[in-house]
Amino acid sequence: MIELRGIHKAFGENRVLQGVDLDIPRGESLVVIGGSGTGKSVMLKCILGLVAPDAGVITVDGQEAGKGDRDAFLARFGMLFQGGALFDSLHVWENVAFRLLRGTLKRPREEAREIAIDKLRRVGLKPQVADLYPAELSGGMQKRVGLARAIAAEPEIIFFDEPTTGLDPIMAGVINDLIREIVVEMGATAMTITHDMTSVRAIADKVAMLHDGVIQWTGPVAELDTSGDPYVDQFVHGRAEGPIEAVR
């Protein structure tokens, strides 16, 4: 469904992506692993058109990303940002219902609020949270609000950028289960970025490892421990010694 071919992206001297090839079939949950600063977020942003690649082609359902109707293209996606990226001037429910309050999906405020509260409940938050501001929430609650916003308009494709980073293990477990459930329930195509191996095992159908600007290895999650790839082995076992330099 989503295809990346030869994606290159550099920021000045910093050559982040150097020919990424990746396929995500419809309805599958792909998890991308890799050290921090290897360009995982940049790759996601390239697909969404937030960052323009220097070279390479990205297609979604055979149609080249960035060509054609941009609103219709973006309407198919939901994204959970690494830092949550909640709008701090808006109430929690207005964040969740953002798409439903303006633009082509606009509907009455009361109705949008109902949907927002429903989505909040879906991610395990009480209706009282709806009228708070994002700054009044804990990190885990903010992540869940971000999750609720990402799924509010029932997108076909959902991106999760480090959904569990900075959370305690229990909250991380809750988020992992939620993501898995939502993906299965909505039948969505999902791409998750993480360096948390528990997340990988909980969320992934397929795993891809990004290193040195290219996809080093890709395969089903069941083969993660027997991949035979030294990069993957080092990452999975969190060893300081190996082909991946610890000093970056």
Partner: peptide, 16 residues
């Protein structure tokens, strides 16, 4: 602040 906390990116992905 919205820019550095990715809120501007979030706006774009929300078709705004």
């Amino acid at each position: 602040t919205m820019k550095v906390t990715e809120q501007i990116d979030a706006l774009v992905t929300l078709s705004t």
